[in-house]
């Protein structure tokens, strides 16, 4: 394992800002794995760190293939992690909305440009992503339809689902989108949680990534994941929103199949304690996402469901 500083920036009042990369094997740039891009992506940095540990052991056993190199970048934003912010510590801009970056531009454009220069030439890019609403997802691989997406390769993570969706204008400045434009096969992996560590989902994700690397012949690894991925269009997921605001108590878990009319969550009046709304399944489906904030606004996404 070789440690490398991919990008460095001095700060007026803090330690230097550093983005670290961990390199395994030597040879063509096969796979780059990026953990957290935001300061609250704890599950994402945890998984990346555990992958560093696993790859280090595999490398010591001679199981990283000759002529292949793998890079893991656990966090693009350690400054925000240290002060509990999601976005860039000073100006609240989102590094994952700055790609491909601009090395003469503003600070987060420079960070994006500096790190992208180091990771853009890999054949495969894997990013552990998070959603803008706090919640739990079924572990899955997500990719944007740029015309360059490789759905068949995504199935080799052997996660239960691969979700494909049309990019929206603001997606064009994300790491995933720009990796694809620069000819990297890019995959966003959702590992259920964001702001806390979910060990079970983390272990599943780690095994999926190692299984994937094994299938790509980047490492020698007996697949531990065997799921046949189902490809789902984002538009085929349907949303269940809350008609009332209040405390939110889910009654189902992600991955659960619910029947028509089954109660899925209660909304409780926070002052009087009464259940003021019971969210029920309008049709049969599998729970793909649950928002996990303790309270919820009216007209807010509570569940994403798969038919």
């Amino acid at each position: 394992m070789r440690r490398e500083i991919l990008f460095e920036l001095s700060s007026p009042y803090r330690d230097d800002f550093r983005i670290r990369g961990y390199q395994f094997g030597k040879g063509e740039k096969a796979v780059c794995i990026v953990g957290a891009t935001r300061g609250n992506e704890i599950q994402q940095v945890y998984i990346a760190g555990q992958l560093v540990k696993r790859l280090r052991a595999l490398e010591q056993e001679g199981r990283v293939s000759d002529g292949k190199s793998v890079m893991v970048v656990p966090s693009l934003n350690p400054f925000s992690m240290n002060i509990g912010k999601r976005f860039w510590a000073q100006d609240n801009t989102d590094i994952n909305r700055m790609f491909p970056g601009y090395n003469l531009g503003e600070t987060t454009q420079r960070i994006a440009a500096g790190v992208f220069e180091k990771i853009k030439d890999y054949q495969i890019g894997i990013q552990f992503a998070s959603f803008y609403i706090s919640g739990d997802f079924i572990p899955h691989v997500r990719m944007m339809k740029t015309g360059l997406e490789n759905v068949e390769m995504a199935k080799e993570f052997a996660l239960p689902y691969v979700v494909v969706r049309d990019p929206r204008p603001f997606d064009t400045t994300t790491l995933n989108y720009n990796w694809q434009i620069w000819d990297t096969a890019a995959f966003s992996v959702y590992a259920r949680d964001t702001e806390k560590m979910d060990m079970e989902a983390a272990e599943l994700t780690i095994e999926s990534v190692l299984t994937f690397l094994g299938k790509q012949k980047v490492i020698t690894y007996e697949p531990t994941q065997t799921a046949e991925s189902v490809v789902v269009e984002e538009d085929d997921l349907f949303n269940i929103k809350t008609p009332k605001a209040g405390l939110f108590r889910p009654l189902v878990t992600v991955g659960e199949t619910v029947a028509v009319g089954q109660p899925m969550a209660e909304v409780i009046d926070p002052y009087e304690g009464e259940v003021i709304e019971v969210l029920k399944a309008g049709q049969e489906g599998t729970v793909f996402f649950i928002q996990d904030a303790p309270f919820i606004l009216e007209k807010t996404l509570a569940f994403k469901m798969m038919k």
């Binding site: 920036l9 001095s10 700060s11 007026p12 009042y13 000073q90 100006d91 531009g105 503003e106 600070t107 987060t108 454009q109 420079r110």
Partner: peptide, 8 residues
């Protein structure tokens, strides 16, 4: 007044 490298 506080700037980082790159700040406009």
């Amino acid at each position: 007044p506080v700037v980082y490298e790159g700040s406009l």
